[in-house]
Computed example of a mutant assay.
Amino acid sequence: MTYSGVVRAGGPADVHELTDLMISKVSVGPMDNNSYLLRCRATGEQLLIDAASEPGTLLRLIGEDSITAVVTTHRHADHWQALAEVVAATGARTWAGAYDAEGIPVPTDRPLQDGDVVRVGRVELTARRLVGHTPGSIALIFDDPHGHPHVFTGDCLFPGGVGNTRKDPEAFASLLHDVETKLFDALPDETWIYPGHGKDTTLGAERPHLQEWRARGW
């Protein structure tokens, strides 16, 4: 089946099958957050990105193979509501951006710095700190050796713009700068973007609108 990235709360996961990695995307309520289960195809090891809500839904998605870690993209509460229950059920380690860890009530086992490598089995992802939506938001980049990059952006980049910076010009400028320099300037148009809410996109689809975002200020 062709992956669309279109999911809805209460509905099934959509699975993106890559050569080395399987990415299962599910939406959980009440704010239609996206959670992503990453599975190394060589080893079967699994990692969850954002235990946002509905621990039962997430634990069914994880299945009997369990997970080794949960990465929380940022400190906002809608992205960690199920974290404590998922960790209790799986024994997974917790990872989050070093500058957001204090805002997450479940202790962070591994605070991530910009450029740190996150491993799931034989697959490596690179953490990039994006400042503005929160002080320590992170994106995770999988540079697929068999294709194009795949990036999990939390609430920092969506179809149509960067994340909410609460009408703070300094925060907006910071977030746009980091998204431009660490994502748009570093990665090709084919790069697939998996956001914290809603539909997926690509850098190529969003790149023509960067000046429009800068002009409107959000």
Rank of each mutant, 00 (worst) to 15 (best):
V106K: 11
G44D: 05
A215V: 03
G198T: 00
A77T: 14
S66I: 02
G154A: 04
P195W: 01
L47D: 02
L48A: 04
H209E: 12
G103L: 13
I193E: 00
A13Y: 05
L37R: 01
L187I: 01
R119V: 15
D65T: 14
R60W: 10
K25P: 06
D200V: 15
G163N: 11
V162K: 03
T191Y: 08
L21R: 03
M31L: 15
V151W: 02
A9W: 11
H197M: 08
G136R: 05
V70F: 14
V7N: 09
P208E: 04
E64D: 14
M31H: 13
P188V: 07
I138Y: 04
A92C: 10
R119F: 03
A96T: 13
S27I: 00
G63P: 03
H133K: 04
E190K: 01
K167H: 13
Q211W: 14
V118A: 08
Q46E: 03
A84T: 13
T202K: 06
S137L: 09
P145H: 11
Q211M: 13
E85M: 11
D14Q: 13
W218S: 09
W80I: 10
L130P: 12
H16A: 14
R39I: 05
P188L: 03
D109Q: 05
Q46N: 02
M31Q: 15
L37D: 00
T134P: 13
V123L: 07
